[in-house]
């Protein structure tokens, strides 16, 4: 079956984007170049936030 291949790309991307935003998960997506834009970026953004909060916690301990 070719059902999965015909799912609109923007729909897939929108869904992934939502998931990444809401969960802040490290999805480790390896999407082809050109499609990774917004998804990759919101995951990246969440990952940087995670580092900030962990670094802040350590800083406040000392």
């Amino acid at each position: 079956s070719t059902t999965t291949l015909t799912t609109p790309q923007n729909q897939v991307e929108g869904l992934l984007h939502e998931m990444a935003d809401e969960a802040g998960l490290d999805l480790n997506l390896e999407l082809p170049q050109g499609q990774s834009g917004s998804v990759g970026n919101s995951v990246a953004s969440a990952e940087q936030d995670e580092l900030s909060s962990r670094l802040a916690k350590l800083r406040d301990q000392m």
Binding site: N41, A44, S45, Q48, D49, L51, S52, L55, A56, R59
Partner: peptide
């Protein structure tokens, strides 16, 4: 650019 701004914050903290 927003990602870079967060990276800059983490650079200082690291």
């Amino acid at each position: 650019k927003r990602l870079q701004a967060k990276m800059a914050t983490n650079l200082v903290m690291s």
